[in-house]
């Protein structure tokens, strides 16, 4: 399967990428798309952090950057290039511990035509 991972927040790079890798089977290929961050980091800083994680853990994944509206850019890339599955963050918690769906998560869940995995 061809798997596309979307990353939108610098403090979730490691949990989302390690979660995505735990679910890989032999022969799967991994592409990581960095989208416009929701935190203070710039997209370049986020891409640097993602590339560093990919290299340090020898994931052998292609890293790409998507400017513009995060959700639509991610879903469009997944459809255009025929990815089988989209993996995104779904594990943010409020101070009280409530699960919160980020705007990106909501958009992808409502618009993606392929299977979506949320990493918690």
């Amino acid at each position: 399967m061809r798997i596309l991972v979307g990353i939108d927040q610098s403090d979730r790079v490691a949990p989302v990428l390690s979660g995505a890798c735990q679910r890989l089977s032999d022969g799967d290929s991994l592409t990581v798309a960095v989208v416009t961050p929701t935190d203070e980091a710039s997209i370049d800083e986020l891409e640097t952090a993602v590339t560093a994680y990919v290299d340090a853990n020898e994931l052998g994944a292609t890293v790409t950057s998507l400017s513009g509206h995060p959700g639509s850019e991610l879903v469009e890339l997944a459809e255009r290039e025929g990815f089988d599955r989209l993996v995104i963050d779904g594990g943010r918690r409020s101070p009280l511990g409530k699960i919160q769906l980020a705007a990106l998560t909501e958009f992808v869940l409502l618009n993606a035509t392929m299977t979506v995995t949320l990493i918690r």
């Binding site: 918690r93 409020s94 009280l96 511990g97 409530k98 699960i99 919160q100």
Partner: peptide, 20 residues
């Protein structure tokens, strides 16, 4: 339950209460 809280098993409930 709403938005994942309260947790369902005792160890998670205790962990959650320790933060609240």
């Amino acid at each position: 339950r709403a938005q994942g809280i309260p947790p369902t098993n005792e160890s998670r409930i205790r962990e959650w209460l320790d933060r609240i």
